[in-house]
Design a protein around this nucleic acid. Structure first.
Lengths: 247, 247
DNA sequence: GTCGATTCGTATCGACGGTACCACGGATTC
DNA sequence: GAATCCGTGGTACCGTCGATACGAATCGAC
């Protein structure tokens, strides 16, 4: 009949579930709705996936596969620390683009952690192993994996569950640099030009600007009008932001 | 007729729900079980809390109150950065001791973020404001709050949802130090030999302004127009002037 | 004692996750 | 060619959940 007839029932269910999951949270997606959208009876779903959790895990794993594909497409470069940063940003992007899938992966809604989470962990571990092999890590790669992953997941989940409190992704870049900078040692020991370029973290201006901003908050300047002081604070915040190359 | 009769129904329900929540996840705690444990009919619960989510939010808020009490008991010390570390560790301890309450606070299971989360955010922000006032922060306190909170929540949720992957709390200490070290500067920073508690000193602003002015001269900001930068330099000179030249 | 209003619980609804049981179709066997 | 077996698919159902309509009980006022 229809071309869909050729599809496996498993595929139809997975497609329907993924589509519903893109629009509603996992708790609000009922197996009944999935079955109806897939044109399949309920027992079919349970025979194939055993459980609602099993279905969700399968959906997440399949949705994660394309993410892994995009991640594997970015071959390792010569700079593993740069790969690390790219991996972090990729993680954030995936979370923001597939919020419900992501929540399923890293929220306790699923007792069975989908294989996707394990694989993400393994991928991160691989990158950090390469950092360690290059002598760039200040801690064992296993520990570094946990630290980076926990921070990354925390940033993503914070943005997903409290969007009004984290309206801007830039805090994630700051957290990323905090964590990575403290876990890695600069490569300037051998190859790199010894000086971090001006806008990089650790630049002298941001620190000084932040200091002045803090002190001005504690001690408002009488020599400037309130309007001037406000504009000054605004500039100081701009200068205090170590900034990141906006992609 | 029991001695419990004196208790408000609201209290009985809250107690029963908290006790059940200590042993099972929120999804596995049914309002029926809560009502039975509280010796109360179902409509009572819904009249008092309106919703299961409302009940859970109330339970979380009440459970969080004792955490806040313990946190407020630790008065601010002379070293706000040490307070920051203590706050982080307290956060982790609370999460590990009350996993289900904690998950309710920071997992998307609850559409209504309980007031507890907001208050935790505000408390952290307060500590970071004190750090900023002491000139110890390298970023604005709002941004620092988001960074620290996201990392802290990420560490706690990781330990709760993947205990087999995070069997050791020490990674959390590492993440804590990574984040805090990169957001704060040591108390004996160069910008000013400021003592940590000397926030009200009159000389703090001029020194910081002079430092920033010098660094901006060495490294012109790309984020400001030349006109803006010129005006900023002018203001900085004003601020760097330590008042009446009595000395 | 009677009445009215408020409080509380029984009984119930609709929807959910999950399952027992049956109906059909194609390959295998006699 | 007919009977049989087996895997696929669906209908109808169960127990439980969150949430509620409505009646029963309680209490103060007079």
């Amino acid at each position: 009949m229809s071309y869909r007839e050729g599809m496996d029932a498993r595929e139809k269910i997975l497609d329907a579930a993924a589509e519903l999951l893109a629009r509603a949270s996992a708790a609000d997606v009922s197996t009944r709705a999935v079955c109806e959208a897939a044109g399949v009876g309920a027992p079919m779903l349970y025979r194939l996936f055993g459980d609602k959790a099993g279905l969700l895990a399968a959906v997440v794993d399949r949705g994660f596969e394309q993410y892994l594909a995009s991640k594997r497409a970015a071959l390792p470069s010569a700079d593993p620390v740069a790969d690390l940063r790219r991996g972090w940003d990729n993680h954030m992007r995936f979370a923001l683009e597939h919020p419900n899938h992501y929540r399923l992966m890293y929220s306790p809604e699923l007792t069975t952690p989908p294989a996707a989470a394990k694989e993400a962990h393994a991928l991160l571990h691989g990158v950090l192993e390469r950092c360690a092999a290059a002598g760039l890590l200040t801690v064992p790669p296993e520990a570094a994996t946990r630290v980076v992953m926990a921070a990354n997941v925390g940033a993503a989940l914070s943005m997903l569950t409290r969007p009004e409190q984290y309206p801007d992704i830039r805090f994630a870049a700051r957290l990323r640099d905090s964590v990575i900078d403290s876990l890695t040692r600069p490569a300037d020991a051998e190859a790199d030009a010894g000086e971090p370029h001006g806008t990089g973290r650790g630049g002298a201006v941001p620190a000084a600007a932040a200091t002045l901003a803090a002190r001005l908050r504690a001690e408002p300047p009488q020599r400037l009008t309130t309007v001037e002081a406000a504009l000054l604070q605004q500039w100081l915040e701009t200068l205090a932001d170590p900034g990141e190359p906006t992609d």
